[in-house]
């Protein structure tokens, strides 16, 4: 969910060369990733239930395993291996192109945010040191930044080893749901693997009434050194948070701490062409 996004500016299934969708020809799928304004700029106070503002200064995510399956059963994949992107830098960022695709409906599209390994490479937005950190720690996502309510400022630098696979992605642009993508005959379809940075701060893993909150995260800084660590979040039992101050609904998970909640939230980051969604599974 990102209301800052100008939907009309998104390259949702942009057909760069207007042609038909069938006819036995071929086309290409060009993949990109973007963290939208929430990751590149800020998540403004107006979006939070408790008046906090969050600004990222780094948002590293490993993206790979881009796969497609045609309605008739053909399969294809992006040849490039997993790569780390810093979505805090101005995007969208190119992920790669899958060429020679039969024109028509590729109804099953998916990707992954796997844990970084020794074979993971770096996008131009990522330094060698950052790549090495991701590899060494096996992170799938690393997010750092700061938050303020106008009087208090807290920083955070959280690494997550929470690999996820986003499968059977559904485009919801144009007011209708479309499974996967349509490859134009002789043209290129642009596909965005969208990462929603605001989801780390949602107070419910399932409810459509979820709100963004940071106050309880800020309060977890028990040593008051200005940085909220994941270890400090792990020390906060969700049952200690009054239900009137955030549902922190855990859906069908067994999450019991604020740290566990934020970790589980990392598996809600991946989207498809803006607001589109996918089925997610872990490893």
């Amino acid at each position: 969910m990102n209301d800052m996004t100008d939907r009309t500016a998104l390259p949702l299934l942009t057909i760069l060369f207007a042609v038909g969708c069938t006819g036995g020809g071929e086309g290409e799928a060009r993949f990109e990733t973007w963290g939208e304004e929430y990751i590149e700029q800020e998540i403004p106070a107006a979006e939070f239930e408790d008046g906090w503002t969050v600004t990222y200064d780094k948002f590293l995510v490993v993206i790979g395993d881009v796969t497609l399956a045609h309605a008739d059963g053909d399969q294809a994949s992006l040849p490039d291996g997993p790569r780390v992107y810093d979505l805090n830098t101005t995007g969208p960022h190119d992920v790669g192109v899958v060429g020679a695709l039969a024109a028509g409906d590729w109804t099953t599209v998916g990707y992954a945010t796997p844990a970084a390994t020794g074979s993971t490479t770096a996008h131009a937005s990522v330094s060698e040191a950052e790549l090495q950190m991701m590899r060494d720690q096996g992170y799938s996502v690393f997010a750092s930044g700061s938050a303020t309510d106008g009087t208090t400022t807290k920083s955070f630098a959280w690494g997550f080893a929470e690999p996820a696979t986003y499968a059977r992605c559904v485009d919801v642009g144009g007011g209708q749901e479309i499974d996967g993508i349509v490859v134009p005959d002789g043209g290129v379809v642009s596909v965005q693997l969208t990462i929603h940075g605001d989801h780390l701060f949602y107070d419910d893993l399932q409810s459509s009434a979820a709100g963004l909150r940071f106050a309880h995260i800020a309060a977890a800084d028990t040593n008051d050194d200005g940085e909220v660590t994941l270890a400090e979040l792990d020390a906060v039992d969700l049952s200690s948070i009054p239900t009137s101050e955030g549902t922190y609904g855990v859906a069908a998970t067994s999450v019991t701490t604020l740290g566990g909640f934020v970790r589980a939230s990392t598996r809600t980051l991946g989207h498809f062409n803006g607001e589109g969604h996918c089925d997610v599974s872990g490893e």
């Binding site: 893993l205 069908a252 998970t253 809600t268 969604h277 997610v280």
Partner: peptide, 22 residues
């Protein structure tokens, strides 16, 4: 509909990825 669950511990293997997308 598939429950939103934590995949390593799950009874079910899939879940939609967006709050409110259950």
């Amino acid at each position: 509909g598939t429950p939103v669950a934590q995949w390593r511990e799950l009874l079910v293997p899939q879940a939609h990825a967006h709050p409110g997308h259950y």
